[in-house]
């Protein structure tokens, strides 16, 4: 049996939750003081996901970097692989919010998209 310790993020109370696991099976969820805490804890120990936001380089634009995000949350363990894949990308201005910057980032099946417009610098 393994115990995973979590802090609930649903409200400022921040309950310390203990989840007893037997391999992949959840035996008990303890320490939460409401239903939302249990739902959070169950998801967090089985398949934690996160949105990833970062920046990529742009040339010829009004800004040197462009803000981007994963279109959907991705598995937590893929965060660094995702950010690594963005490091080598260099875009040409103009870029529009919603443009796909990287398809299927780090084999998550999720695209990374621009969250901002970067206009072309008028020379």
């Amino acid at each position: 049996m393994e115990i995973k310790n979590l802090t609930c993020i649903n409200c400022p109370l921040g309950c310390a939750i203990k989840v007893e696991m037997d391999g992949e099976t959840i035996l008990h969820v303890k320490g939460n003081t409401c239903k939302r805490g249990e739902v959070y804890a169950r998801r967090e120990v089985t398949a934690p996901v996160r949105m990833v936001t970062s920046t990529v380089r742009v040339t010829g634009g009004t800004l040197p970097v462009l803000s981007v995000k994963t279109r959907e949350p991705i598995p937590k363990e893929k965060i660094f692989a995702c950010v690594q894949a963005l490091k080598v990308i260099e875009l040409l201005a103009p870029v529009h919010a919603g443009d796909v910057v990287l398809k299927n980032a780090a084999d998550t099946g999720v695209d990374i998209v621009a969250t901002k417009n970067v206009a072309l610098v008028k020379s």
């Binding site: 949105m51 936001t53 970062s54 920046t55 803000s67 981007v68 995000k69 919010a97 969250t115 901002k116 417009n117």
Partner: peptide, 22 residues
Amino acid sequence: CIHNGFGLHTFQEELTGPEYAR
């Protein structure tokens, strides 16, 4: 503020800062 978490009350969706501003 390029991170997400903006707009849950206003737009019922989670936007990044630049998207919310837009």
